Simulated scan of single mutants.
Amino acid sequence: MSDAQHAVITGGAGFVGSHLVDSLLDDGFRVTSLDNFGSGCPQNLAHVDSERFDSVEHDVREPFPELGDVDYVFHFASRASPKDFASHAVEIALTNSEGAHNALAYARDHDARAIPASTSEIYGDPEVHPQTEEYNGNVNVRGPRAPYDESTRFSEALAVAFRQQYDVDIRTIRIFNTYGPRMRPDDGRVIPNFLSQALQGDDLTVYGDGTQTRSFCYIDDLVAGIRAFADADLEVAAGEVINIGNTEEIEIRELAEVVIDALDADSDVVYEDLPEDDPQVRRPDITCVKKLLDWEPSVSLKDGIERTLPHFRDDLGSDDY
């Protein structure tokens, strides 16, 4: 055990973080999760039974506790659901700024590799499609999504500053729409919304006319990309930023029909007004990650939804959610 590499994951009880915990433990790492359980759920880690795992309740807006020697710091703590952008705006903004600072400082002080999670939201409502890493985005800095979008953009600037001033090995991942088991049924993002509504016999709510598009990456593909980037040689990945996502683009109204067909649900589609600043298109250009890491997603949307369904069937009947 003493020879195992040690990874710290902020937001380790969250949707993405908990899957990353599993992947690292499977590969023999010692893993510490830091989570205040604001949006992360202890149930996401209830299955973990390993002496190499430790769950520490901690708010990353505060300096990290001493955790011993650390090799990797994965900063994945943040509320990422649009329904939280208004109700938890300040918390989100500070988690992505003060929290990112604390994570990067801890990596610097322990000579660890830092892998901060960024997001496709930094592209805003993009005027370039698909979105490349060189595109600087089209973000409304005073809009309802700004606490998340702008604080994440700042976290990227902070990562660049730490790289320039302290020569920290920092690798930034821009995560595009991802789905899979352990998403909360009340998460507020479109696939959890559709699955929850269909399973409960409700109509599926599409905002706007449904012609806006997204690209959805299954969680296993995302984690494989994160791990490949984190483990890549120093000269290949240090200081880089990459998009990770699926390039299979779909209109939201078509996605609703895919979910209805997958569940053989007796649901209709209803339309409501589009929220302010909701992006019209979102699809990653993954040329960079394919070139650097020889990575690309392998799970189709249909297969991914079928893999996700059992989780939602279980959770909708559970008192834990």
Score class of each variant (00 low, 15 high):
E156C: 11
H101C: 02
G14D: 09
E248Q: 05
P126C: 12
D71Q: 06
D169S: 06
D186M: 08
D315Q: 15
Y321K: 11
Y321E: 15
F154K: 01
L204H: 00
T152H: 10
D71R: 09
V299L: 08
I219Y: 08
P130R: 08
R61Q: 07
V168F: 04
Q43C: 10
I250N: 01
R171I: 11
G317L: 12
D278I: 13
V16H: 06
P181V: 10
Y106E: 04
E98I: 05
G11S: 12
V299F: 06
N102R: 06
P275W: 08
S39M: 07
G201W: 08
V73K: 00
R145Y: 15
A89E: 05
T308F: 00
A230F: 00
S23V: 09
Y271N: 03
A105D: 06
G12A: 06
G208A: 04
H110L: 02
L94V: 14
E51F: 03
V31Y: 00
V21S: 01
R108M: 15
E296I: 12
F216W: 11
N36F: 04
V269K: 09
I260D: 04
P130S: 13
G210K: 01
L263T: 09
F53T: 07
L94Y: 04
E235P: 00
A7D: 03
S97F: 05
S97T: 15
L255K: 02
G210S: 04
V289W: 01
W295P: 12
F76M: 15
P181T: 10
I191K: 04
A198I: 05
V258H: 13
A237G: 06
N96C: 07
I305E: 01
T211N: 11
N140T: 13
Q280I: 06
D203T: 10
R282Y: 05
